[in-house]
Amino acid sequence: MWGIEVIFKGKNFLRLLGGLGTALQISLAAVLISIPLGILLGVLMAGKNPVIKAILRVYLDFIRIMPQLVLLFLVFFGTTKVWGWDLSGEVSSVIVFSMWGSAEMSDLVRGSLAAIPKHQYESAQSLGFTPWQTKIYIIIPQTIRRLIPLSINLITRMIKTTSLVLMIGVVEVLKVAQQIIEANRMTAPDAAFGVYLFVFVLYFAACFIPSLLARHLERKWS
């Protein structure tokens, strides 16, 4: 029914899972790089140095304006043309998603820090906390709590956007799905619905697990 049977033909099922694995590996690597980098950049953006702030602002907006597909082409083909680097599709994807993730993350961190009311700092000071103690015991715990849902949202967006990497030759879950649909064009012309439905279930599972984790953490810390 709906061409779901083609998913279980030959190695198709394992190929789809393998494709999801590729997508998740790229997103996981990018998340592991962009969260710490994003936090660092966010703290700098919330700081007082106007030059650093301006540079980071330009970086953030550059990454935001550029469609991810253009960034992928720039890193994958552009670096070869200009510097002769031969980056693989996977490495280029991790670079682009880390650039994007750290830019978005830095803005989330900046926003969360800015959202801490001024009286929190003043109360801490009047209770005799040093500036460092204020940051560690008062500001950071509150910021992290605000950041959890925002960063999970970013992570799920990153997972979903990995579907673009098929344009630079990385065979991830969506590309495998297209391959399966096309390979069965004659024998199962209506396979598209079933296969895409299955891809939907895979993406849903991949994005739902981090959401559950986030909900758990939020409840635990509130």
Binding site: K9, G10, R15, K175, Q178, Q179, E182, A183, M186
Partner: peptide
């Protein structure tokens, strides 16, 4: 191509055809 049957595609065993 990996999804243009019958010119270049991948069969159910993951082989290019």
């Amino acid at each position: 191509f990996s999804d243009k049957n019958p010119f270049g595609y991948v069969d159910e065993n993951g082989e290019y055809q």
